Simulated scan of single mutants.
Amino acid sequence: MRFNKQKRHRKTVRFFSVCFGFRQPFKVLCDGTFVHHLLHNDLTPADNALSNCLSASVKLFTTSCVLAELKKLGASQSASFQAARKLTIARCDHEKRVTADACIAEVIGEHNSEHFFVATQDADLRKKLQKVPNVPLIFGLRNALFLETPSKFQREFVKSSEEKRLHMTENEYKALEKRTTSISANADTEDSSDKEGLGCHSPGLLPHNTRNYSGKERDIKDRVRFKRKKAKGPNPLSVKKKKNHENPNLASRKEVKGDDGNAQSKRKRKRSSRGKRHAETDGV
Rank of each mutant, 00 (worst) to 15 (best):
R269I: 13
R223H: 13
S214Y: 02
D124N: 09
F26I: 07
M1L: 04
R2G: 05
F34Y: 12
L147P: 11
I183Q: 15
K7L: 12
F3P: 05
S51V: 02
G258R: 10
H40F: 12
A187I: 06
Q154T: 10
V132W: 08
E172G: 05
R10W: 08
L87N: 03
L54A: 03
S192A: 08
A105N: 06
N262G: 07
T180R: 15
S17R: 13
R97A: 08
K128G: 03
G74A: 10
V13D: 00
N143L: 01
P234A: 07
R155K: 14
T281A: 15
T281K: 15
C65N: 11
R14Q: 14
S76E: 13
A100S: 12
G197D: 02
S214K: 02
S184V: 08
S184R: 11
E95P: 14
K254Q: 12
N48D: 15
C65R: 04
F26S: 09
R8F: 01
L141I: 00
S76F: 13
I220H: 12
L39K: 01
V158K: 05
V66E: 03
Q121D: 04
K257S: 14
G197C: 00
L166C: 11
A263W: 13
S151Q: 10
L50Q: 01
D124V: 06
M168F: 12
N249L: 12
V66L: 09
A187M: 10
K240Y: 01
R179I: 09
R97G: 04
D222W: 13
P248W: 12
K276M: 14
G275M: 13
L145K: 01
